[in-house]
Design a protein around this nucleic acid. Structure first.
Length: 279
DNA sequence: CGTTACCTGAAA
DNA sequence: TTTCAGGTAACG
């Protein structure tokens, strides 16, 4: 579910409300979503802590808890972090509850339980393997080329690789490749400087738009206040296999790449002639 | 490297 | 009943 724009929106909506809030009690309803410690230690570590400035790195949300301790959340496919009044009805698939002293509850809900929460002294270690932040000004064609050079894997599978660039997922990868006019199967090492430039700009564009639209809600993404996003209305290829390309009108292709459904326009995103992926 | 497993639910 | 789903770690 949540890629960079969704996590960023969750963080932005929760940040002002959680800053300075104290956790009275933590409650784990499903052990599976707790990583790095026992659920008991997780709850003990959180009780009495005051939350600092919430931030995002890649698809992780990170809350400082003081004394070098952090709460780190990854939402997996269907994770939601939602703040609600204590008296409000529980969200469906509630897995963890952080009861705040101000009378609100920060819920972690996750239908598929692929997401994880952890308390750690070393937030750095959790995000150490991540590549650059695509919205940071230092992310440019040279940085991207450094990481694609000599690689034969399809460019899309590299875009999904969080150690290459942090935060892209299946939706925004497809959208960025369409905007850049690049075929998802293009061997990464074949990217020209010009193509890398276009791809970097496209990545920035789709992510920035995603944030401006408060995230993409296909089925269950909501922000920190439980509200869906609107970016799904702007998608140009994701989930549109068989429909007409917004540029040329020809039907979009749907293929499977790196184990993920992939949509692109064979006309607007042609493979370079003679490239291995063409055969 | 691509594929499978991890989970649960919705939709075909 | 089968297939598919925004992610990623493990496997061969």
């Amino acid at each position: 579910m949540p890629e960079l724009p969704e996590v960023e929106t969750v963080v932005r909506t929760l940040r002002p409300k959680l800053l300075g809030a104290t956790i009275a009690r933590a409650e784990v309803r499903d052990d599976l979503v707790i990583a790095g410690s026992s659920p008991e230690d997780f709850c003990r570590a959180l009780a009495g802590r005051t939350i600092g400035h919430l931030r995002r790195r890649g698809k992780f949300a990170i809350a400082p808890l003081g004394e070098g301790l952090f709460l780190v959340a990854h939402l997996g496919m269907t994770g939601q972090l939602v703040l609600a009044p204590a008296m409000a009805p529980e969200p469906r698939f509630a897995r963890v509850a952080l009861h705040l002293e101000d009378g609100h509850t920060l819920w972690y809900a996750d239908m598929r339980k692929f997401g994880r929460l952890r308390v750690t002294q070393d937030a750095e270690a959790v995000t150490a393997g991540l590549g650059p932040e695509p919205l940071h000004p230092s992310f440019d064609a040279a940085v991207l080329l450094n990481r694609t050079q000599g690689r034969k894997r399809p460019i899309k599978s590299l875009l999904l690789d969080q150690s290459v660039v942090a935060g892209l997922g299946n939706i925004y990868a497809d959208e960025a490749l369409f905007e850049a006019g690049l075929n998802p199967c293009t061997p990464a090492g074949d990217l020209t400087g010009d193509q890398a430039n276009r791809l970097v700009e496209a990545i920035r564009g789709v992510l920035t738009r995603g944030i401006a639209n408060r995230g993409t809600t296909i089925s269950d993404y909501v922000d920190g206040e439980g509200r869906p996003g609107a970016n799904q209305l702007t998608l140009r290829v994701y989930g549109r296999a068989g429909q007409a390309c917004v540029h040329c009108g020809r039907p979009l292709s749907g293929i499977r790449l790196a184990g993920r459904s992939t949509c692109f326009c064979p006309e607007c995103q042609p493979l370079a002639p003679g490239s291995p992926a063409e055969r």
